[in-house]
Design a protein around this nucleic acid. Structure first.
Lengths: 205, 205
DNA sequence: ATTTTTATACCAACTAGTCTGTTTATTTTT
DNA sequence: AAAAATAAACAGACTAGTTGGTATAAAAAT
């Protein structure tokens, strides 16, 4: 047996993520990561073959957590209620509650961070981001589709675009919340999305 | 007198803005700017005393254009119609139309670009960003206030938060539109905001 | 009208320092 | 023994910014 490198690796990843959200990826140096992680250069390059390798790992881990959380949210609300509209609203409320507990603005989304310096990243990284966003679109579109079977839309709208609005509002709210230093803004913005869906779908079929 | 430096300065600013949206600010080197602008280092540092000076100029120019466009939009829709709700909807439609003409995703918002590498910028730059966003909040809140006088809200909501949603959706849509490479996404997302307002406000007082 | 002056605009080469990544030898942990 | 980490030196490319000098164009002086 040998000693366990996981704590070191995890520490590097956690500190790197924070630093990237503070400085951008190009604006974050390996030396800064070493300083914050309290490790040495040898340890860093033992765990990651390059800074680009770190970038890939960071986005893969972020995406995994993001999609795992989506899965949890879907399971938590699944068949909880016979009415698909109520399920949808409960799903959104879950994220409102999550965001309402924040005492400082959400540190930011790595997807957006990477999207705002696209030339720094390889195509497979960009595909990971788009495929994650498309998973959200797909899952929410399914819920909207179910809802539409029993609740007529007062204004006909494209379901995928309506599904995207969840992601759009989250991403936009992270930016504005950080810019204004208003932690509660994200929860309030998601509440508008919930309002919109309540108004858009008629109460009964 | 001597030769005119304005074309050179403008070229630097235009190419820099593009590069910053492609690479981030820290990810953009002065040498890259020189290459794209086809000028030399001497010329660059003649016009800008530092790279930070360029950052400040970029955001000031961007903010000026942004707020000037807001002003135009307000004037174009001003008293065009007696009904403040119709004016509000027209205002939003103007931005939908603007975004609908894009053939590739909007290159991105400098506010968001800067917000995602906050440590790179001084406090006065961050204040410029927040004050620009707050101007949008204020102006839209006035329109919402006017609207509320004659149209009851079906779900009571905070006007400033409802005003913020315009900026939130724009910022979020820029991110998602770029990530998915879907130019039309931004227009579609703004349409949802318009739908929301139409559903939220009752047709008459 | 032609020369001289002046301020601006710009260039090319250079400096001092930072960047990622490598190497090598040693030490700690399981 | 094997894996995980330290420590420190190093390379080569790239970084922001500086320097001394030159080109340009218009105004001032002749």
């Amino acid at each position: 047996m040998a000693r366990d490198g996981k704590p070191t690796r995890d520490k590097i990843l956690a500190e790197s993520k924070t630093l990237v959200l503070e400085n951008g990826f190009a604006g974050t140096s390996v030396d800064q990561i070493l300083e914050r992680s309290k490790i040495t250069k040898g340890a860093f390059f033992y765990h990651f073959k390059s800074k680009a390798d770190l970038a890939r790992t960071l986005i893969e881990d972020f995406s995994s957590e993001d999609l795992a959380d989506l899965d949890n949210a879907l399971k938590e609300t699944e068949a909880l209620n016979g009415d698909p509209l109520q399920r949808l609203l409960k799903f959104i409320q879950r994220y409102i509650d999550m965001m309402a507990t924040l005492e400082s603005p959400y540190p930011g989304c790595l997807y957006a961070s990477y999207i705002y310096e696209p030339s720094q990243f390889s195509d497979d990284i960009k595909e990971k981001i788009s495929s994650s966003i498309l998973t959200w679109r797909r899952e929410l579109a399914v819920m909207l589709d179910e809802t539409q079977k029993t609740h007529r839309m007062k204004i006909p709208t494209d379901k995928e675009s309506l599904a995207d609005q969840f992601t759009v509002i989250l991403e936009g709210a992270f930016v504005v919340s950080k810019a204004l230093n208003e932690p509660q803004l994200t929860a309030h913005q998601l509440k508008h999305y919930k309002n919109y869906l309540e108004l858009l779908f008629e109460k009964r079929a």
